[in-house]
Amino acid sequence: MTDDPIIKFDSVVKRFGDLTVLDELNFEVKKGEKVSIIGPSGSGKSTVLRILMTLEEINGGMVTVGGEPLWHEKAADGSLKPASEAHLRKMRVQLGMVFQQFNLFPHMTVLRNITEAPTKVLGLSKAEAKERAEELLELVGLADQASKYPHQLSGGQQQRVGIARALAMRPNVLLFDEPTSALDPELVGEVLNVIGKLAEEHDLTMLLVTHEMRFAREISDRVCFFDQGRIREEGAPEDLFTDPNEERTREFLKAVLD
């Protein structure tokens, strides 16, 4: 972990109609840091990830990834203008995302799901992509499932494929959007194990939106409590979970931990 912020939100505003989801949010993540975002529904947690993955545009402020503006680019005269699709494509290379509903491609085998983007976007040969995919399937414990289709797998297995698919693009930052919320309780563990292993063994920067408090506490370097589009409180997991400063954090933790 170094001290350069790889992700920086500077007074970022996001509105959906009249609803302000992010209210001048300031937020930083250092390279290699594992940050968990917790908070009530509608507090803007997922929106942070979706903005980073360029699935949602921002209405104000500035987001930088690796020191470069994400939603802006430099015009010829040096001023900043809204990002073009080409700029977004270039920036997206640094990011990967694991979705709540897995979002696997149902008509492709597990292997094709993982190799599609590396071959078509990164220009890997089929053999290279296959080799990479097999390594990743090994990592997520699904080495024997490569030729199956997503619907033949359990939810937990599908999500592990989702993780392998995101990793196959070798992102610097991996975004997890409630990766276990759509799973049956008995399948949550296998997915958390994989995420935990990644957090331990890789210097990947990880941003995790989750309701799994115990897990967030175990793997995170820092936990951010989001409320009403802002970070209400943040800190080391031990401090935030055992002795939060804010009454609102205390209430939330009490409600979810009981």
């Binding site: 699935l55 995302m97 008509h107």
Partner: peptide, 25 residues
């Protein structure tokens, strides 16, 4: 839209997304 979002997150081009993700489904 989850399929379009997954394709976008993987940086697939819009043409590739249409021909290989949307159309086959």
């Amino acid at each position: 839209s989850d399929q379009r979002e997954a394709a976008r997150a993987l940086n697939l081009s819009s043409a590739r997304t249409f021909t290989h993700i949307i159309v086959p489904q």
